[in-house]
Design a protein around this nucleic acid. Structure first.
Lengths: 202, 202, 202, 202
DNA sequence: GATTAATCGAGACGGTACGTCGTGTCTTACC
DNA sequence: GGTAAGACACGACGTACCGTCTCGATTAATC
């Protein structure tokens, strides 16, 4: 099955070095400050090598953030409010991390460059868009299952559409970060979940 | 009060011509297809003149969409659900308009490039970010007032936070367009408002 | 004869102010540093006014240097060597003055920008070229007459072509300043005249 | 000795194509008509590539004329007058070639734009100035050696300064082309050399 | 062990959009 | 009609950035 490769095998260490350098640049200097040229130089790698793995700056950027979010998980304690709050807090934290990228410390009350650029990247390249949507779909599937289970055990009203609920919750966070620039701290997140669940309860 | 200007006054017709050309290019060919150079040429205007008013391609793009949304208004019929639905439909329509920008007809089930690029522009330039947030703040202020009035006349429960409600509604739309790529048609919009108001009723 | 002008007469003080400012800029920052825009501002004059008198930056520059050389005169003492030396020294001095324009002090061993730019200006605009050649022709006419008189009174050999002699002398100075960058100090000038006259004597 | 280069080597053919295109434009349309942009296009080369080799339009122009003069050589027949005349004729021819650049045919009795612009370029950029002076120094070294040899074998008087003689000859040509606009045809050149040697003979 | 195929390093090359710079003209109001 | 102020036109220039291509040198698998 695994086609036997010929020729020199890829140096697996390179991925690590490149992504580390790219992550640093992206978080420190924002999307515009992420230069494949410079990433290659800092990682001690040829541009050819870099582009063989990530055919585009956009792809590289996506790879960076994908790796950053790998560890996000969803827990199911049986208390829907608590579980959703936990999930939202993780999302909010991730957003906050990128919101301040490329900005002087403390200047994160503005809006979020990197996230927007990544979304734009998804629009520029079909594969990135697909990949991004898949990532979110996979992550959200867990949350949707969570909601569905809560509904089935009677915590939520029967007619509730889990997708709409999730849109409301996650959407509010993204909306604040991307559009209005309002904070998405823990207090807000809890109030948000509480409000949404008020009408969702059975 | 009206400071008497000296020197040749700005030709107000130029704004019109430039923005018209820019709007066409932005909606037809997307953000990458918006070229200040070509806009100037099509508008019959010197590049210098264009850059005097919009110092950056980003500024020009923002001016375009700002003008596109000028006419969006909010009506207050006394029926909060109807009014909010109307508002959301308008937002959804605007998003849909930009989502398909620069894409072959029918290919709008992908995600939204222009919107994301504009958000990114807001992150690249402080003044654009401020301006964008002001526009949204002004527009949302009307919606917030609407919600507040509905709450005062007893349509909504007393403890409801209008901001959170609005975040949930508008956020869901942006979230679907920008992140998940799900449709934001009328049916969804109505379901969204209904769901959100379920828990908000008195 | 003098056509009776109508309207507001030109402010003669303006010529003075503008040329003074232009001279300063030209000598301090070289030809590229002479900006009509800035000259107008420094002279407290509108650009319109400036361009009404000097239709081009080139014309303005020429006017500046023409004024600088107004006082160059030729003396006829009866000693052809002495007179020619005097003339050449004046030319050399003028060249040295412009050679150092726009350069840090002491850095005049390079070549001469302003002179070259003025020559180029003469090539760009026919009128400037004509005017320049006339100025040189007028000045040289005096020198040629000087040589002719010396030849007639037997100081120089009969077959000598005054034009060729003058070309050799003035040419050598310009050649050094413009092309080779060699110095044109008094010692060189004297040696030059002596050498040229060696073969010109009767 | 030959340092082993790494990376993709420069395409030597590009210099050829670019310089050929630039030469054509410079000689046909003068200095203002030499557009790096268009040169790149005509040579089928990216602007980046062009600017990597000639960082400025001035540098490109200098490279063009430097190549034009590469083939100028000096012959030593033992007859100093003949040799110097030959050299001067070559210089005059080169000057005449550039004098008519960018002007309608027959309109070359004006003055010389390109030469002046090149001199100006030498003043704008130190490296160009140095390079230009080196080129002239190298070429003149041969002529100076010629003169020295003639002096040593008794054709010229012992006290003659070769540099001064060369200044007189070459200077006269440049002076006429750049300043007075007088012709530098063969007849004049011969008369010039004859006159200068009159006083230089032993 | 020789060959082969793919990777890596280095840097030139292509393409193109962007914004700047500089001159000179034009349009106001004012004198 | 001259003057002040500043917008406007025109166009060249150079830069920045991304991504491709071309070398030579390496490395591992295969014959």
């Amino acid at each position: 099955m695994t086609e036997s490769r010929r020729g020199r095998p890829r140096d697996t260490d390179i991925d690590e070095r490149v992504l580390r350098a790219a992550t640093a640049m992206l978080l420190e200097h924002g999307y515009a400050g992420l230069s494949p040229n410079e990433v290659a130089e800092r990682a001690g790698v040829a541009k050819t090598t870099l582009y063989r793995r990530w055919p585009t700056k956009d792809h590289l950027a996506i790879a960076v953030v994908a790796r950053l979010q790998e560890d996000d998980e969803i827990t199911d304690t049986g208390d829907i409010r608590r579980d959703l709050t936990g999930y939202m807090v993780k999302i909010a934290a991730a957003l906050e991390r990128m919101r301040s990228a490329g900005r002087p410390a403390g200047d994160h009350d503005a809006s979020a460059g990197v996230v927007a650029e990544l979304v734009a990247a998804g629009a520029r390249h079909d594969d990135i868009g697909r990949l991004g949507r898949e990532v979110f779909a996979r992550r959200n599937a867990l949350a949707l299952a969570l909601i569905t289970r809560a509904r089935e055990r009677g915590e939520l009203r029967p007619g509730l559409d889990p997708v709409v609920l999730l849109d409301q919750l996650a959407g509010a966070l993204y909306y604040r970060v991307l559009i209005t620039g309002a904070p998405v701290d823990r207090a807000y997140t809890e109030r948000l979940v509480a409000t949404a669940l008020d009408g969702a309860r059975n």
